[in-house]
Write a protein that binds this DNA or RNA. Structure first.
Lengths: 340, 340
DNA sequence: CTGAAAGCGCTTACAG
DNA sequence: CTGAAAGCGCTTACAG
């Protein structure tokens, strides 16, 4: 197998094709790109030569000449979070139609790794960038401008005045909290993500608004947004506040962690703890009880974010504001009614 | 924002740095790569110049010269299948340490898309490739040799004589089936993936072996390996064979589909249907009942596959055989005992 | 220890 | 409709 540096056999390039077809290299290029006028006869000769010599285009040469690579980065915190996996799929589908490659980069929610990954991406001179910034992200407006055509997804960052795609988290979270309040719950713990994340802030605001409006005390726990973190957090919370009757899960992993922790304590949902999740997952539908959840339109968010990047690439005007896609509360059966 | 073609301001290259530092371009290159001898004084001058002019390396130029890109492709069927998401994460972690970028490509389990994605990857002249081939994959040994340093993951393909990383599916599946048989089940339906997939073949073989050894009739349904497909399949199976008492789920999505379909029919696990899954997922632990499952060592499989690619790149000998990582059955509570 | 030259594969002006 | 020249940014021999 080839190493990174060995020469190997002389490679097949446009020149090889040109020689075989008896034309010049740029005529080959024209035929291959389908741009400019080429006579039918020449085209056929070239195509035949391409087959004959087994030519395979080299994207690196093309990118170097173009000073841009037809590639967009997707810099997220964790691909094993199903929200991001679904987002990736939706974005990729849009870009593929437009001949753009989506390059997935994991930051592990670590600012240093995030910066490394961005530098890496940036070294390929990509055409655009989609980011869900890390919690303590150190990315600046300049970092992002250096790549260009950047859109934030799900998470935003005050320092970055880029367009973003988010969902109406405050309203959706308020609605979720109100559903619990309406069922008679008063001690409702919100198990959130990292305090510094924009998603936490926005969801927390909705929770607080609902609690304040009803005159009840908010109870908030921050986590690292993972199932393991939420699992120990919910146990701690229930231990310290035995009067908790309901919980809200920040995202799918956190909701999983809440249920796992509850089970660790031999508790049952909804008898011992009512639950509302944020972001749907397949298992929530057939879980016993089925989990009431704020359903985020993940595919729609991905598609919109991709379209915004395409608009930026095409120099179309894009508002540097939050583009909001609505979520809605999906009532299932994880809320126990406390009304008597 | 920049389009793909506009010139923009003159870009900062090694030449810019060289001019600023009063040295030649290849001295800059030497300092940046840390290769060859450079005097301490020169190194400092160059580093200062790099900062002063805001130089950012261009990987495209480097790759063109090297005729290889330090990038390995991961061509899978569906990133929203948590198995692949976890696999991606594990592989990426290994490659990152070695300065290799992992490029994720979705085939949607469609042979045509798979070929397009491989062509795309191949146009970047990557250093290696990891593939879980599509069901009716048309990939040939030549296709793969053209990229080089290829390792198959999870799924294999007879036409491809490449090293592969798999788990001991026949044994693990046999063990899972035997656990059901031991609990007194006789009508056990195996809800598998696509008939043509190697994973289906291998898991089916284990299931058949166990059924044959116990003298009971196998009952097999093939699916498209998605939750939606399995959902309608299990309903159909239970309708046609009302005596079914147990099911085996091919992978996480199929196991989800079985539970969803069971619920659609107002059935309950394990009272109306015992269940064993293949491939663990977080929710299976706290589901009521917790799901008994064959746990695949996904991270380990990913790490091993990555190491094999690294070995191939380094021209180390790698056996073109299946490298097997053991799975084991994790007993939880989704099997109802029928013994009286 | 450092530099001048050449070339990786492609495509963009510029001619004809 | 087609071609000769140049250059995208980098690094590999080859000299000194």
């Amino acid at each position: 197998m080839a190493t990174l540096t060995d020469g190997g056999k002389p490679s097949v390039t446009v020149k090889t094709v040109a020689a075989r077809a008896g034309v010049s290299a740029q005529t080959v290029s024209r035929v291959l790109r389908g741009s400019g006028y080429v006579s039918q006869q020449t085209r056929e000769k070239v195509l035949a030569a391409v087959k004959a010599v087994g030519y395979r285009p080299n994207a690196v040469g093309r990118s170097l000449r173009a000073t841009r690579t037809p590639m967009v980065g997707l810099l997220i915190t964790d691909i094993t979070n199903p929200f991001y996996a679904t987002l990736h799929k939706a974005i990729e589908a849009v870009f593929r139609e437009h001949g753009l490659t989506l390059m997935l980069l994991n930051s592990d929610d670590d600012p240093q790794t995030e910066r490394q990954q961005l530098d890496l991406l940036s070294s390929y001179r990509p055409s655009g960038l989609l980011v869900a910034p890390a919690v303590a992200s150190s990315l600046t407006a300049e970092d992002i401008a250096a790549v260009g055509n950047c859109v934030l997804v799900s998470r935003t960052l005050p320092a970055l005045d880029a367009p973003s795609v988010v969902t109406n988290e405050p309203e959706a979270m308020r609605e979720a909290t109100e559903a619990l309040l309406r069922a008679g719950h008063r001690q409702i713990v919100a198990v959130l993500g990292p305090a510094a994340a924009s998603t936490t802030e926005r969801r927390e605001a909705g929770y607080r608004a609902a609690m304040a409006a009803s005159g009840h005390e908010p109870l908030i726990y921050y986590t690292d947004q993972t199932a393991a973190g939420a699992r120990s957090t919910i146990k701690q919370a229930r231990h310290r506040h035995p009067d908790i009757t309901a919980a809200i899960g920040f995202n799918t992993p956190v909701t999983e962690g809440i249920l796992a922790g509850l089970r660790d304590q031999d508790g049952h949902c909804p008898d011992d703890l009512s639950l509302v999740g944020f972001t749907d997952a397949p298992w929530m539908e057939f879980h016993q009880p089925p989990i009431t959840v704020v359903r985020q339109p993940v595919e729609e968010m991905g598609a919109l974010a991709a379209e915004l990047v395409l608009d930026l690439i095409d120099d179309k005007p894009v508002a540097k504001t939050a583009h909001t896609v609505p979520s809605r509360l999906l009532h299932r059966q994880s809320i126990r009614s406390l009304s008597r």
